[in-house]
Design a protein around this nucleic acid. Sequence first.
DNA 1: GGTGAAGCTGAAATGAAGCTGAAAAAAGGA
DNA 2: TCCTTTTTTCAGCTTCATTTCAGCTTCACC
Lengths: 221, 221
Amino acid sequence: MRILLVEDDRELIASLKKPLKEAGYVVDVAEDGIEGEYLGNEDIYDLAILDLGLPKRNGLEVLSNWRKADNKLPVIVLTARDTWQERVDGFKSGADDYLGKPFHVEELLARITALLHRSIQSPGKSLISGDLILDEDRQIVTTEDGQTHTLTSTEFRLLRYFLLNTDTILSKSRLTDHLYNFDSDKDSNVIEAYIKRLRKILGKERIETRRGQGYIFKESW
Amino acid sequence: MRILLVEDDRELIASLKKPLKEAGYVVDVAEDGIEGEYLGNEDIYDLAILDLGLPKRNGLEVLSNWRKADNKLPVIVLTARDTWQERVDGFKSGADDYLGKPFHVEELLARITALLHRSIQSPGKSLISGDLILDEDRQIVTTEDGQTHTLTSTEFRLLRYFLLNTDTILSKSRLTDHLYNFDSDKDSNVIEAYIKRLRKILGKERIETRRGQGYIFKESW
DNA sequence: GGTGAAGCTGAAATGAAGCTGAAAAAAGGA
DNA sequence: TCCTTTTTTCAGCTTCATTTCAGCTTCACC
């Protein structure tokens, strides 16, 4: 999962980056409204965290521009003054969620999870596909036979991305984009290696190879 | 699908070719405005990606020449300076879409898909013709009897091209042009081989042979 | 009806894409 | 720092999408 953080307060950025990374997200930061709006249209993000008080272009403006352009990126708005009025404005502009400062990182993480799940399925704590349960807090997966496996960070991120995008061909380069930062080496076979590990845990049938195209994680099979 | 990329930046060309190819497009490159304008009139392209800053002839000029000649080729314009003014100019010259540099490849791909669909038929995730459904996410086709078949990359591209051009005679060389690069061997029978495979999946009647001319994919029969 | 080109077909060759197990490298913790 | 865990690389191997091929059939034209 790749998250866009649009925020100008360096201190806040620093304090958010680590926990977000720990939760298995790749984070890109935009420090002003114009850059933020641009990046948010890139179509590689799964979610944006948008501060309202930004230099160059106001957060609400950024948000409503996205929506005008039919960009459906899930957005969590951050604001210093959490007034009733502001909140209404935020949602009117198309925010999916709203969080007043100061806030606890845990709350933000929880809202992120909720928001990412919302577009896929009914809200719930775990990601479920068929008889597969992924506990996102503990990064543990429970398979059909009731066995649990702790996942390494990369295994977890890959599986989560699959679970949030079932029944769709995901090319290796798309997977790389969502798992790693931009500087990643394109012609390595890391993805293949991790697919193999996931298959060992989940069973071979679950992830189908489409030669020359990518992989499909099958919701049911 | 065959895409004309008019771009002089070798590095950008290199970074675009692979993902475009992965997405199932054949890509030809013109490195200056004059060559680009010429190729764009060849009537074999389904879409052009046109940079504005080109040697020999400016991109906007190329575009407006095409339009003057009543060439309706869908065009996505790339520009280094993404200003309001430039955007307006681009659309006035007949661009179908506009993308400022730098951009992420996935956005370009999304816009290509959107544009191809827009220019040919109503938007939708699946291409439908008669009782035939082509799921582009999964590259699966569902036939009249409700059976689904997974397609290989070439089968998919060929079928998609047929579905986007139903009830039209498509010559073998035109099909070859859209599936392969120019240097492809002209007197091979690959197309015949793939027609056979498609017929096996879809039924014989669906694709009619016009001896000496090509094939017709029939919308209904 | 005979002829030749165009198209069809099933099987086989090919080569790139993907898989795999192990080992090297890097990251993380004590 | 050293040790453990995780990540990445590598080289050989396997698989299968693609292409080729050779023989066959069909069709248009005479």
